[in-house]
């Protein structure tokens, strides 16, 4: 039979009374993110050529990309932060930040019922280059 007066937890419990708490007062006190942490996907619309590889490879189907509309959108709540899109991007338009994506509430859903967390980018089509426009045969005659 074990000695009933043996209390091995007592020294630790007494030390706990005077030591600092092991937890943080989240969200007022935040721990800085580690450098390699996987967080939200960051998109740079200027360098993207809309090859749509990221949308095809995304295992969670969180990315929508359209070459015709020159649009790119990600559903940050569907994204599983695996980093496949960042790896396959040829133009280095995608990167992963260490910070997590913003937390969205249901109240933020758009009136047409789209879920919150969707981030959209649209690249305007370049203006037509008038200097090299083909001259029609009728005008030269």
């Amino acid at each position: 039979m074990a000695n009933p007066f043996r209390l091995p937890m007592v020294p630790r419990a007494l030390r706990n009374l005077v030591s600092r708490p092991a937890t943080r007062l989240y969200p007022t006190e935040l721990r800085p993110r580690f450098a390699g942490a996987r967080g939200a996907i960051v998109f740079d619309v200027e360098s993207c050529n809309f090859c749509m590889l990221c949308a095809r490879r995304c295992p969670a189907a969180a990315i929508e990309c359209s070459r015709e509309d020159r649009s790119w959108a990600i559903d940050q709540l569907t994204c599983i932060a695996c980093g496949v899109c960042v790896e396959v991007c040829n133009k280095k338009s995608l990167s992963m930040s260490a910070e997590p994506g913003r937390v969205h509430t249901r109240a933020e859903a758009t009136p047409d019922g789209r879920r919150p967390g969707r981030e959209e980018w649209l690249k305007p089509a370049p203006p037509p280059d008038l200097t090299t426009a083909p001259v029609s045969a009728a005008a030269t005659d």
């Binding site: 580690f34 450098a35 390699g36 942490a37 996987r38 599983i80 932060a81 695996c82 980093g83």
Partner: peptide, 12 residues
């Protein structure tokens, strides 16, 4: 885990 793999629970 978070330092080395980037995730606390799901390491990928």
């Amino acid at each position: 885990f978070e330092k080395t793999t980037g995730g606390r629970i799901i390491h990928s």
